[in-house]
Write a protein that binds this DNA or RNA. Structure first.
Length: 1087
RNA sequence: GGGCCAUUAGCGCAGUUGGCUAGCGCGCCUCGUUGACAUCGAGGAGGUCACUGGUUCAAGUCCAGUAUGGCCCACCA
C-alpha cells in the first residue's frame, strides 16, 4: 500500500463540498458531540459542566440567516468549552409554536383545496373527531420541518448532542408542562379570570398579543355631550363632554371618569349622567388614569382630551381596568362578529327606555349593525340632537388581526392566567439580576397593573432589592444595556394569559364542571360579587393529590376546576364520568418553551442531567425574545427548581436584508443557510457571521440570487409588498444571463405567490458578504498545504546552512504572535466578543503567518528542522483556535497535519495531541514565553522590507529582479539586523552587498531613510520619483514635528499628562527630527 | 407614548477604561502568474469621525442638545 502525499490529496482550492460531509461523518462515528452527566461531586476531578440549550426554532418553516448566526455562536461556545476540557453539552430541539404552526398548516390546506381548519371544526361540532384529524395534519407538518431544521443545523456543523434532541410537545416536555401547571395551580399562581382578549371578529378567535399588528389609521376624535342629572334623575341642563375615537362603544358605557387631580373638573366626581340613546344612568368617577387636558401640551392626548373619559369596560382594555378599580358594571354590546347585539351581556337593554334621552327606535335600529355602521348611526344621532360638540381628525395606531386584517375587538372572555405579578415570579426574576446591572427605579412608583393601583416603592421595600451574598449565580446580560429592557418589562408586567383557543398545543390539564347556582342579590337582582366566593383547596382522589378550585361568577354559575397532575388517566376518566370536561383550550406556546431548560434535562425528575447542566451557562438569542421567553424561563426555573435557567444572556444582532428589513419567515425575505453553504461553504458562512457579530443591534445582509440556469449571481428585481411597504424580491425573475428563461424567488415560494416549476426553478440566494470567509478558508487551506508539502519534502540540512538547532528571529517572532493570538482568542470568547475573536485570528493567520512568516522561511524551511517544527506548530495552533468557528476545514486539515507532522509544540505553547480536532484540547499559551526583543527586532526587519518595497514599486522594479542594496545602520541596530539579513533579502528580493555604520551611498542609488537606518538601492536612482517621494515624506514629517512641538510647548500638557506619555512624545519628536534631517540631506544631494 | 441602536473612506463595518500619523474587508489605481493560494501577492489613492455646544492638557471616544435612518415594547379616550 502506498501513501498518497497530502499535497496531491488536497485540492489546489478549498472545496467545501468535498470536505463537509466526510468530516461530519467522522464526528458522527466518534460520537463526538455526546456528553454524559458529570459524576457526583465526590470526585475532585469532575470536569466543569458547560451547557447551552438551543432556543428551539419554530417548526413553522426552515431556518434563515438569523438562526444561522444564532446557532453559529452557540456552536462556537460549545466547541470552545469542549476543547477547554469542560463537560460541554448543547441541547437541540424545536418548538411546536402553537398558533403560528396551526395557521401555517391551515393556510397550506386551504391553498391545496383540502379540508382545512374550518371543516375540521365543523366535524368536531357534529361530534366527530375533527380535532384529532387536524392535529394529525399539523403533526405531519411538524415532522417534515423538524427534519428540515435538524438537517440545516447539521449542515452548518452544529455540535449539538443529537441523542438528546427534544420537541416542546414530546412526552418528556409534556410531563414537565403538566407538573409545572399543577404546581402553579396548587400554589394559587394560576387562576381563571374574565378579561378582554384580542378578538378577531372575522375568524372569530382570540389572538395572542404578538398576532396583533399595529397599523396607523386616520380616524377622528368625536366630542360627545352627556347630560348631567340630579339625584332624582332629572337633567340639570349641564353636560360633560367625552372624547372618543370609538363612539359605537358608548352603548356599553357604565361610567364617565375624571382625574381627581383635575382642579377644573374634579368637582363633577360623584355626580351622575344619563347615557344618550340608551338612557342608562351612570356615575362620574374619579380615576387618575384620565389625562388632564392641556392645549399647550406636546402630548397629543393632553391636547385632544376633554378631561372626561367615557368608560366602556367590555370594549376597551383601559376601561376594563378602570371598571375593576371602580367596581363598575360590564356591559358587552356586541356579538362575536362585532355587530351590535343585546344578547351577549347587554342585560339592561330594556331597563332605561323610559328615560328622557333614551331612543328606542334608534336602539332597535342599531341592533345587528356592524361596528362601522353603528359608529355612523351614533355620530349622526348626536349631531342631530346637538350633542356632538366637535370632531377632530386623529391619526393613531389600531391593532389589526394579522389573519383577517380587520381591527381587533377587545372582547370579554374567560381565560387562564399565570399570576406572574406575584413576587414569587416577577420578584424572583428581578432578584435574579446581577446587582450591578440593576438600576434604581426611575419612578417612585411601581405600577402594578393587575392590582390596578399605584403602589409606592415603600410598600414593597425589600422585595425588589434584596442583598445577595453571592453574585456569581445571578443573571448577567451581554451587552449589558439589555438588562434594562429586562428590568423594565418586569416592572410593567401584567398577568400572563396562557389559554389559547387552538388545537395545536398542550391541552390545559384542568377538568371543569359548571352548575347553575345563581347567587343573586334579592334587592336589585345583581349577582353577588364573585370575588367573595372563591374556594381553593387540595383534595385527595384515590390517594393522589389534586388541586381544586371553586368559584361563583357574576353570571350566576358555580364553576369547579380540578387540576390533575401528570400520569393519572384513571382519575381523568373518573372525573369525566362525574360530568367534568377537560378544558378544550391549549396553553400558550411560551408556557412550554419557558420550561425548556428544565424539561429538556428531565425535570420534574431528579435526573443526573438536571443536576449537571441546570443552570445552563448561557442563553444566546436575539433581543426580540427577551420579554417573551427569557423572562418566563427565569421565573419558571427559579420558582420550580430553585435555580437560574442560565447565568449569562447573550443578545446578538438581528440580521436584516439589504433594505434594512428584519429577516423573517412571515415576510418571506429569509435566506436559507443551505443556500450560502452551497455557494460559499459552511465554514465561510460561519466565519463571516462570526466576524459580523459586534455589539451593534442590527446587521445588514444584501441578498443576491443565483440564476439556476447559468449558476451566475445577480441582484434580483425587487417589488414593494404589503401594507408595510416592504421591499422583497419579485416572485418570478427573468434571468439576466439566459434570454427568455425565468426562475422563482424564495420570497415567491415563502409567500405562496409562486411555485417552483421545471420552467422556472427555485433560485438559490447568496451574498457576496461571504466571500470574506470563503477567501479566508482558502487562504488557510493553502497555507496548510504549503506547510505540509515542505515538511514532507524535508531534506538534510544544507552544508553551512542555517539549521543551528536554535529558533531563528522569525521563529521566535511568530511564536510570540501565536501566544498573543491565543490570549486574544481567550479574551474575546470569554466576553462574547465574537468579532474580535474572528478578527484577531484573521490577522494572525493571513498577515503574520502567511504574509510574513511563511514568506520569510520559504526558502530555508526544507533544510531546517527547527523551522519545520515551528511551522507545524503554527498550523496546529491556527487550526485549534479556528476550529470553533470553522470546524469542517480545520478538522480536515488536522487529519493531514497529524499524518505529516505528528511532532508539534514549542516552548510557551502546550498542544497535546489528539486524533480528532473536535476533541483536541484548546491551546495553552504561556505569555512569559513571548520574546519581546524578537518582536521588536522583527518589526525593524518588516520596516526595512516595507521601505525597499516602496522604492521598488515607485521605481517600477519588476518583483523578480534582484537589486543590490547597502544598508547604513547604527551599531545597535546592526547587531540585531545582521543575523537576519537573509530574511530581508528574501522578503524584499534584494542582495545586501554592504552593511554597517560607515556604509556610503553609491551615486546611482535610491535611498530610503528612517531614524536609525538607511537603505541604498543600487542603480535605482530616478531623480524625479525620488524627489517626489522624498518631498512628500518631508512634508509629512514637517507636519508631525509641528504637531509634536506644539504639544510639548503646551505647559499644561507637560505638567498634567502622564510622564510616560510626555516622554514618548519627546522620543517621537526626536525621531521625526532626525529623519527629517536625513530626508533633507538626500534632497540636497539630488540637487 | 416609552426604551434602544446607528451615523467614521465609494460600499459594508472595527475603534476596549479619553492619549502617537483613526483601522479592517470589498471596491478603485499601478505593477506582478516557471510550484501554497489570482478565492493571490507588492505598492498606492481615498476620511475636517452627522451637526451644535460643553468637560479636559487631550474627544471618534465622556456630557447635553439637534438632525437623519432603523429596531423593540406599548391598552384604540
Amino acid at each position: 500500500m502506498t501513501t498518497t502525499p497530502p499535497t496531491t490529496e488536497l485540492a489546489k482550492q478549498y472545496r467545501p463540498e468535498d470536505v463537509e460531509s466526510e468530516v461530519a461523518k467522522r464526528w458522527h462515528h466518534a460520537n463526538a458531540f455526546h456528553a454524559e452527566p458529570s459524576p457526583p461531586q465526590a470526585s475532585g476531578l469532575r470536569p466543569r459542566p458547560y451547557s447551552i440549550v438551543i432556543p428551539p426554532p419554530n417548526v413553522t418553516a426552515a431556518l434563515h440567516m438569523g438562526h444561522a448566526l444564532n446557532n453559529t455562536l452557540q456552536d462556537i461556545l460549545t466547541r470552545w468549552h469542549r476543547m477547554l476540557g469542560d463537560n460541554a453539552m448543547w441541547m437541540p430541539g424545536t418548538d411546536h409554536a402553537g398558533i403560528a404552526t396551526q395557521t401555517v398548516v391551515d393556510k397550506r390546506l386551504q391553498a391545496e383545496g383540502q379540508p382545512a381548519l374550518k371543516d375540521y371544526k365543523k366535524l368536531e361540532a357534529e361530534g366527530k373527531p375533527g380535532r384529532e384529524q387536524f392535529i394529525d395534519k399539523v403533526q405531519a407538518w411538524k415532522d417534515e420541518y423538524e427534519g428540515v431544521i435538524t438537517g440545516q443545523l447539521k449542515s452548518m456543523g452544529c455540535s449539538c448532542d443529537w441523542e438528546r434532541q427534544r420537541f416542546t410537545m414530546d412526552p418528556q416536555c409534556a410531563k414537565a408542562v403538566r407538573e409545572a401547571f399543577f404546581r402553579l395551580f396548587k400554589d394559587g399562581l394560576i387562576y381563571r379570570g374574565k378579561r378582554l382578549v384580542n378578538w378577531d371578529p372575522v375568524t372569530q378567535t382570540a389572538l395572542a398579543d404578538d398576532e396583533v399588528e399595529m397599523q396607523d389609521v386616520d380616524g377622528s376624535f368625536w366630542y360627545m355631550k352627556y347630560p348631567i342629572i340630579d339625584d332624582n334623575g332629572k337633567p340639570t341642563g349641564e353636560y360633560v363632554t367625552v372624547a372618543t375615537t370609538r363612539p359605537e362603544t358608548m352603548l356599553g358605557d357604565t361610567a364617565v371618569a375624571v382625574n381627581p387631580r383635575d382642579t377644573v373638573r374634579g368637582k363633577y366626581i360623584g355626580k351622575r349622567v344619563e347615557l344618550p340613546i340608551v338612557g342608562r344612568h351612570i356615575p362620574i368617577v374619579g380615576d387618575d388614569y384620565v389625562v388632564i387636558p392641556d392645549p399647550d401640551s406636546d402630548d397629543a392626548k393632553a391636547k385632544m382630551a376633554s378631561g372626561f373619559l367615557k368608560v366602556t369596560p367590555a370594549h376597551d382594555p383601559n376601561d376594563w381596568e378602570i371598571g375593576q378599580r371602580q367596581a363598575l358594571d360590564v356591559i358587552n354590546v356586541m356579538a362575536p362578529d362585532a355587530s351590535i347585539s343585546k344578547d351577549h351581556g347587554w342585560d339592561d337593554f330594556d331597563r332605561w327606555l323610559d328615560r328622557p334621552t333614551a331612543d328606542k327606535e334608534t336602539l332597535n335600529a342599531l341592533l345587528g349593525q356592524s361596528r362601522e355602521q353603528a359608529r355612523k348611526t351614533i355620530v349622526k344621532w348626536f349631531e342631530a340632537k346637538g350633542l356632538l360638540e366637535d370632531t377632530k381628525p386623529y391619526r393613531h395606531a389600531v391593532g389589526h388581526s394579522y389573519r383577517s386584517h380587520v381591527p381587533v375587538e377587545p372582547y370579554l372572555s374567560d381565560q387562564w392566567y399565570v399570576k406572574v405579578t406575584d413576587d414569587r415570579l416577577r420578584g424572583a426574576a428581578i432578584d435574579a439580576m446581577v446587582p450591578d446591572q440593576r438600576t434604581e427605579l426611575f419612578e417612585p412608583y411601581l405600577y402594578d397593573r393587575n392590582m390596578s393601583r399605584k403602589q409606592t416603592a415603600q410598600d414593597t421595600p425589600d422585595k425588589l432589592r434584596p442583598e445577595k451574598a453571592d453574585w456569581h449565580d445571578q443573571l448577567r446580560f451581554y451587552p449589558e444595556r439589555y438588562a434594562r429592557t429586562f428590568q423594565q418589562w418586569h416592572e410593567n408586567l401584567r398577568d400572563w394569559c396562557i389559554s389559547r383557543q387552538l388545537w395545536w398545543g398542550h391541552r390545559i390539564p384542568v377538568w371543569k364542571r359548571t352548575t347553575f347556582h345563581k347567587l343573586v342579590n334579592p334587592e336589585n337582582g345583581a349577582a353577588e360579587d364573585s370575588r367573595l366566593n372563591v374556594e381553593e383547596r387540595i383534595e385527595t382522589i384515590n390517594g393522589v393529590e389534586v388541586a381544586y378550585q371553586r368559584r361563583w361568577e357574576a353570571d350566576g354559575c358555580e364553576y369547579e376546576f380540578i387540576c390533575v397532575p401528570h400520569g393519572h388517566p384513571d382519575i381523568e376518566e373518573g372525573l369525566e364520568r362525574l360530568g367534568y370536561e377537560q378544558d378544550p383550550d391549549v396553553l400558550d406556546t411560551w408556557f412550554s418553551s419557558g420550561l425548556w431548560p428544565l424539561s429538556t434535562l428531565g425535570w420534574p425528575g431528579d435526573t443526573a442531567e438536571l443536576n449537571t447542566w441546570n443552570p445552563t451557562d448561557v442563553l444566546c438569542t436575539a433581543r426580540e425574545i427577551i420579554t417573551l421567553w427569557v423572562s418566563r424561563m427565569v421565573m419558571f426555573n427559579t420558582y420550580l427548581h430553585g435555580k437560574l435557567p442560565f447565568r449569562d444572556v447573550f443578545i446578538h444582532a438581528m440580521i436584516q436584508d439589504g433594505h434594512g428589513q428584519k429577516m423573517s419567515k412571515s415576510l418571506g425575505n429569509g435566506v436559507d443557510p443551505n443556500d450560502i453553504i452551497h455557494s460559499h461553504g459552511a465554514d465561510a458562512m460561519r466565519f463571516t457571521l462570526t466576524s459580523m457579530t459586534t455589539q451593534t443591534q442590527d446587521v445588514r445582509m444584501p441578498v443576491d440570487m443565483v440564476c439556476p440556469h447559468t449558476q451566475k449571481t445577480f441582484t434580483p428585481k425587487f417589488i414593494t409588498t404589503g401594507s408595510s411597504q416592504s421591499r422583497v424580491a419579485a416572485p418570478i425573475q427573468d434571468s439576466p444571463f439566459a434570454k427568455g428563461k425565468q426562475m422563482t424567488s424564495s420570497f415567491g415560494v415563502a409567500s405562496g405567490q409562486a411555485k417552483a416549476t421545471k420552467e422556472a426553478p427555485l433560485a438559490r440566494n447568496t451574498s457576496e458578504k461571504f466571500d470574506y470567509g470563503r477567501n479566508f478558508a482558502n487562504k488557510l487551506w493553502n497555507a496548510t498545504r504549503f506547510a505540509l508539502s515542505n515538511i514532507e519534502e524535508a531534506t538534510a540540512p544544507a552544508p553551512g546552512g542555517n539549521d543551528t538547532g536554535e529558533p531563528s528571529l522569525a521563529d521566535k517572532w511568530i511564536t510570540a504572535r501565536a501566544i498573543e493570538a491565543v490570549q486574544a482568542a481567550d479574551k474575546a470568547l470569554g466576553s462574547y466578543d465574537f468579532h474580535n475573536y474572528a478578527q484577531s485570528l484573521y490577522g494572525f493567520i493571513w498577515n503574520d503567518l502567511c504574509d510574513w512568516y511563511i514568506e520569510a522561511v520559504k526558502g530555508t524551511v526544507k533544510q531546517n528542522a527547527t523551522t519545520r517544527r515551528v511551522l507545524a506548530t503554527m498550523i496546529d495552533v491556527s487550526l485549534r483556535l479556528l476550529h470553533p468557528t470553522m470546524p469542517f476545514i480545520t478538522e480536515k486539515l488536522w487529519d493531514r497535519l497529524n499524518a505529516v507532522a505528528p511532532e508539534r509544540g514549542v516552548e510557551g505553547l502546550t498542544l497535546p495531541s489528539s486524533e480528532l480536532l473536535v476533541s483536541a484540547s484548546w491551546p495553552k499559551a504561556d505569555p512569559g514565553a513571548i520574546d519581546q526583543d524578537a518582536e521588536a527586532s522583527f518589526a525593524r526587519v518588516q520596516d526595512a522590507v516595507a521601505m525597499v518595497r516602496e522604492v521598488r514599486a515607485t521605481n517600477k522594479v519588476p518583483p523578480r529582479q534582484q537589486v543590490d542594496v547597502s544598508v547604513k545602520v547604527s551599531d545597535e541596530v546592526y547587531a540585531k539586523l545582521k543575523p537576519n539579513q537573509g530574511v530581508l533579502e528574501t522578503l524584499a528580493n534584494v542582495k545586501v552587498v554592504a552593511v554597517g555604520p560607515n556604509v556610503e551611498k553609491p551615486a546611482d542609488a535610491a535611498a530610503v531613510v528612517r531614524p536609525n537606518i538607511e537603505v541604498y538601492l543600487h542603480g535605482q536612482l530616478d531623480s524625479e520619483s525620488e524627489k517626489t517621494r522624498l518631498t512628500k515624506r518631508a512634508e509629512e514629517l514637517e507636519k508631525q514635528i509641528k504637531n509634536l512641538r506644539g504639544r510639548l510647548s503646551n505647559e499644561s500638557y507637560v505638567s498634567k499628562a502622564p510622564e510616560k506619555l510626555v516622554n514618548e512624545t519627546k522620543q517621537h519628536l526626536a525621531d521625526a527630527e532626525s529623519e527629517a534631517e536625513k530626508v533633507a540631506e538626500q534632497l540636497t544631494g539630488l540637487g
